[in-house]
Write a protein that binds this DNA or RNA. Structure first.
Lengths: 257, 257
DNA sequence: TGGAGGGTTGACCCAGCGTCAAGGTCAAGC
DNA sequence: GCTTGACCTTGACGCTGGGTCAACCCTCCA
């Protein structure tokens, strides 16, 4: 006969676990010897090892109970399902490994691949890291708000970048220029923006974009804070009857001052 | 700005989990809008996704905290260790899968392979399943008590089985014979047993075997109950001055009756 | 005879949330 | 302006599978 610790160590579990199984009724309480010690037989070993094998597979103890007390067919069916879950779990862990590797490599898991590609294209145009980070955060917010539209939105941005005007516009975001009033580039930027806007208005692309006002306001203020020349550009555009930045609009004539 | 449920669903976690991370200090509490709702920015998205990636890898939240607040090198080292654990976990699950398959196939996980082989050899000798089960349970108990000796014990049993006497002896355990007193095979079994004992005594192999008395008594009584002829054999042997079955001994002369 | 090394029960503790409970808020429709 | 339904808030309890004491008993060996 076996003592509890012999049983436990042979089955590879702790004494505490065996007692736990007794308490939850998973393993029947065995006979006691005259001093109250539990004494186990071979059947207990077999049952305990079956319990462990299932529990190691992540099966909840209640389910283990059901399975062990079920018919052979039910048992086989249950085991098959457990095996399916195990395979899925293994795949999940492998997936986690690759995500972890990308995390360690500094990759931005918060962004879909399409956005990462778009940012890389901007980088290729010589756009500075400071601006890229701003865009990146904006895209994270956009992706979080409309995750299933993001790929098509990015596709449209890529098309826009095929326009030389747009490329020229982005090229102003290189490095850390401290533009002062009177810089001729300010007028150039304003000209480009106005051309782009007019084209957008003609294409009927202006209006509701699905983003909330708070977000648009945030984007605008962030842009103004980070791009020193932006304020000057906005002033020129305002004179010409436009307002906004992230979401540009024709200002109604009666509100022009 | 994002609400808590937008943040949560984009990062693939529950709202409850996000609040939990706030409570444990893993994710800083963000600003609230005027009605008390939490409003999140891109940095929160990034941090939450890093948290999830690590937590999905099974890292405890406290360790996630440490890692995210650590230097890049510490982080890389930590991630490497986590990846090692993940690989180990995947291997463990694969191992569990194969154990599960053996369990479903009815194979006896409670026994080391050497014992399974030995039982198969007995089966090959024509020994009945009823007796095999008795032996199996006995071996389970032995293996549980002295797990590291089991292989060498089995090796010795294999050697014994090379002896034709032993083979003949086991052949009596076939089927379900109902031996009655006077059956000539009883004397034959007793003769064989006596020869084997004498040889064992001469080889000095008799005496302490490391099993406890209770176990030996259990084996004896089980054997007597299950093998109808055993009692008759024992009677003959007793006359000749031997006692026991599982552990056979010369009976001291003064205790012979 | 006493100390080590088993055993016994019982009670509390842990992560990582899930799940009510009991409300306050917001946008939309009537 | 009122209702409805979807979200938001905090707070408290529950769950798994045991770990970790605590306080005590039993057995064995020197």
């Amino acid at each position: 006969m076996l003592t509890i610790s012999q049983l436990a160590s042979y089955a590879g579990v702790t004494v505490r676990a065996v007692r736990h199984y007794h308490k939850v009724g998973l393993l029947p309480e065995p006979e006691r010897d005259r001093s109250g010690y539990r004494t186990y037989d071979a059947a207990a070993v077999v049952r305990l090892i079956r319990i462990r094998t299932l529990a190691d597979a992540g099966v909840p103890l209640a389910r283990v109970q059901e399975l062990l007390d079920a018919s052979a067919e039910e048992f086989a069916g249950g085991v098959q399902e457990i095996d399916k879950d195990l395979r899925a779990e293994i795949r999940r862990l492998q997936d986690t490994r690759s995500r972890l590797a990308r995390l360690a490599a500094g990759e931005h898991l918060a962004l879909p691949q399409s956005v990462v590609g778009y940012l890389d294209r901007l980088r290729g145009l010589g756009v500075g890291e400071r601006y890229i980070e701003l865009e990146r955060d904006a895209w994270i917010m956009i992706a979080a708000q409309v995750p299933d539209l993001i790929d098509s939105v990015i596709a449209k941005k890529h098309e826009e970048l095929d326009d030389p005007d747009m490329v020229r516009l982005y090229s102003f975001f290189t490095g850390e220029p401290d533009w002062v009033a009177g810089d001729p580039r300010i007028v150039e930027v304003a000209d480009i923006l106005e051309r782009l806007m007019i084209r957008a208005v003609e294409a009927g692309e202006v209006g509701a974009d699905g983003f909330d006002d708070q977000f648009v306001a945030l984007m605008d203020s962030t842009m103004l804070e980070s791009a020193p020349g932006a304020e000057l550009v906005l002033a020129i555009l305002k004179e010409r009857g436009w307002s906004g930045w992230t979401r540009i609009e024709r200002v109604p004539a009666d509100r022009l001052n």
